[in-house]
Amino acid sequence: MTAASSDKTRQDGARRVIPDRLDGGIVRALKSWEALLLAVAVAIFTANSFASPYFLDPWNLSDATFNFTEKAVVAIAMAFLVIAGEIDLSVAAIIALASTAMGAAAEAGVGTPGLVAIGLGVGLACGAFNGVLVTRFGLPSIVVTIGTMSLFRGIAYVTLGDQVYKNYPADFAWFGQGYVWWVISFELVFFLAVALVGGIVLHRTTVGRKVYAIGNNPLGATFSGVRVERIKFTLFLMTGLAAGAASVMLTSRLGSTRPSIAFGWELEVVTMVVLGGVSILGGSGTIPGVVLAAFVMGLVTFGLGLLNVPGIVMSIVIGAMLITVIALPILVRRLAARRQTTGAA
């Protein structure tokens, strides 16, 4: 083989390899769960625009974001926790307890900065309590947070009973009702900022790699020098803080506090996380997937609301979505394994 023919062969090989890699990357992206969620979001958006003549109004679209931004902020933090192999089912109760504390402080004359600090502080304290029980005492997080879900919500009911806190300062309403620019609400901007920071941390830092390692093999991560318990404790703290922030925005938007506030939100938050492609068993998932899942759920609930669908039907839809996204990957893996077995035979 001459030098010229050898050079030509290398050039031809290069021309073959590079497009194959590009095609592979594009195909993987198109086959990803995030691409499917994006297609579903577009389909739901289109269906809603035909179903109601009021859907495409800019202010109605802005109102649609209030259906999911507060829950989505918690879902971003919850995604880290689930990827690490843990879960927090007390987030809705943390919101209720933080809101109750803010309401009591408002009745005592505390101003807006103090109320925000109290809401975030209660969220951090609840997250720390969950984290200590799980990481220091080795208790299962699902058992711990089911218990603290009843504990935190029970404290709110004991404190308030059938009463309502509603004497909040006028400027406190901005966090849940204010707009940064035109129809762009503060809540939406805050959610997108949290998602951006969460995406960078999870996908572009060593902390994110450690979270994935813990979720895949906590024992192996420990022997690799990862401070597993410390990271898990921090993730519980961040989830509690996110619930505190959601409590500030929700209480501000409603302008009042009842012990039943955010009731049932833990189901919707977990649904967002799992629908976003985060494995309930831990070790996999992405922040973009959770963001897209939040928009999908927001569009679904807002569209059903425009059609005057009862709330109980929305609960059925959310429950069906949760069951489907948990069962679908298992069924797909079983079907693939069966095909491989049949092909080998």
Rank of each mutant, 00 (worst) to 15 (best):
S6Y: 11
K8C: 08
R10P: 10
R10S: 14
G24L: 12
A29N: 10
S32P: 03
S32N: 01
L38K: 00
L38M: 08
A39C: 12
A41T: 06
F45G: 06
F45W: 11
N48M: 08
S52E: 01
Y54G: 10
F55H: 04
L56V: 10
D57S: 13
L61R: 06
N67S: 08
A72W: 01
I76S: 05
M78G: 00
V82W: 02
V82H: 05
I83C: 01
I83V: 12
G85F: 02
S90W: 04
I95K: 03
I95P: 08
A96R: 04
S99L: 04
M102D: 10
A106K: 00
G111N: 12
T112F: 09
L115E: 03
I118Q: 01
I118S: 06
V122S: 02
V122D: 02
G123L: 03
A125G: 07
C126D: 09
A128Q: 04
N130K: 10
L133E: 04
T135V: 13
P140H: 12
P140A: 13
S141G: 09
I142Q: 11
A156D: 03
D162Q: 11
N167D: 13
Y168T: 03
D171V: 07
F172K: 03
A173F: 13
Q177E: 11
W182D: 14
F191E: 01
V194G: 02
L196S: 12
G198C: 01
R204F: 12
T205F: 06
I214A: 06
I214D: 05
N217I: 04
N217F: 08
G225W: 06
V226M: 03
V226S: 12
V228M: 13
V228S: 09
L237W: 07
T239E: 10
A245W: 00
M249A: 13
S252Q: 02
L254E: 09
S256E: 14
G264I: 12
V273C: 03
V274K: 00
L275K: 04
L281R: 15
G289H: 00
V290K: 01
A294K: 00
A294D: 14
V296A: 14
L299F: 07
V300M: 07
F302R: 00
F302D: 00
G303K: 01
G303W: 08
L304C: 05
P310C: 03
P310M: 09
S315W: 10
G319S: 09
T324I: 13
P329Y: 09
P329K: 09
R334G: 13
Q340R: 15
